[in-house]
Design a protein around this nucleic acid. Sequence first.
DNA 1: ATATAAATGTAATGTTATAACATATCAATA
DNA 2: TATTGATATGTTATAACATTACATTTATAT
Lengths: 161, 161
Amino acid sequence: MPDVVGFTKHNHKHCVSTALKAAQAQCDTRGVRFTPVRRRALEVLLEHHRALGAYDVLERLQEDGYGSKPPIAYRALGFLVEQGLAHRVERLNAYVACAHPDRDHTPAILICSGCHKVAEAIDTTQNSGLRQMQAETGFTVASVAIEAEGTCSDCTEKARS
Amino acid sequence: MPDVVGFTKHNHKHCVSTALKAAQAQCDTRGVRFTPVRRRALEVLLEHHRALGAYDVLERLQEDGYGSKPPIAYRALGFLVEQGLAHRVERLNAYVACAHPDRDHTPAILICSGCHKVAEAIDTTQNSGLRQMQAETGFTVASVAIEAEGTCSDCTEKARS
DNA sequence: ATATAAATGTAATGTTATAACATATCAATA
DNA sequence: TATTGATATGTTATAACATTACATTTATAT
């Protein structure tokens, strides 16, 4: 049931360019502007399967000739999160590219404390459980964040040897 | 199934002193020291059903004659979190007293964006879902944070009028 | 061409958190 | 009960993360 991306092997260059095209298309559809900084910010996130801090992203943007002050990064990242193209990882005060921007998702973030990679699982059962809670307690859920810390299979194996 | 504490009415003074006694007992059992600052920090959290920032807690500690520098608060709060007597709310960079310190828990934090109260639900199904994921993906979960933002029943009612 | 809105940019500052080190307190035991 | 090793408390300094307020530029729709 969980669909995990990020800890498995894949053609990375391809995965980046595909994701960028998809993001462009999605923004076009929605009538929002996928400007150069925003695009570049997403690209930076996509280049890693790790969570990057706003200041890390800012550094890259700066190198590319964009502004050098924090709001530059925070605004681009804010846009990406708003559009579901990236997620903020609260535990790390950092950001990851979304692995399934197409789907309507309540992401579950998996953080490996060994290699610091971050993956994203979609688990639809979580949603239903929380919606049910609304009926029972009167608390209306607007958004849910699920973040797990642990060890990915690679790191588990390495630890065995 | 979810057991929600925090949005319901209760005798507050009683709830504070009971919780402090329970915390003391738990620390005794575990052989860890429930020192005055730690105790006072928990008391401060218990006095609100809101999440307090480390610097808010620090202010109270300071008033009571404890140290005035950030590590004083961060250390006391760190201890409480470690012992399961409080939780860190990542979304708010803040801390709440745990509502069920006795139970082995994966807390689900409910944050009301209307009144800023914070409650805690225990939903055991979440756990099993994540453990299952471990089998399927090889990711071993060490700890999970579930945080929902939304509107509590009181605020929903107020909004209707 | 121009008005309006959106996006980008900067300066200044606020907030949250930790590292590094000094001192005091507790707990076991020689 | 004096000593010692571990734990806890305290400070200074600084790092890391984030926002407010305001100026300038760029896109878009008349």
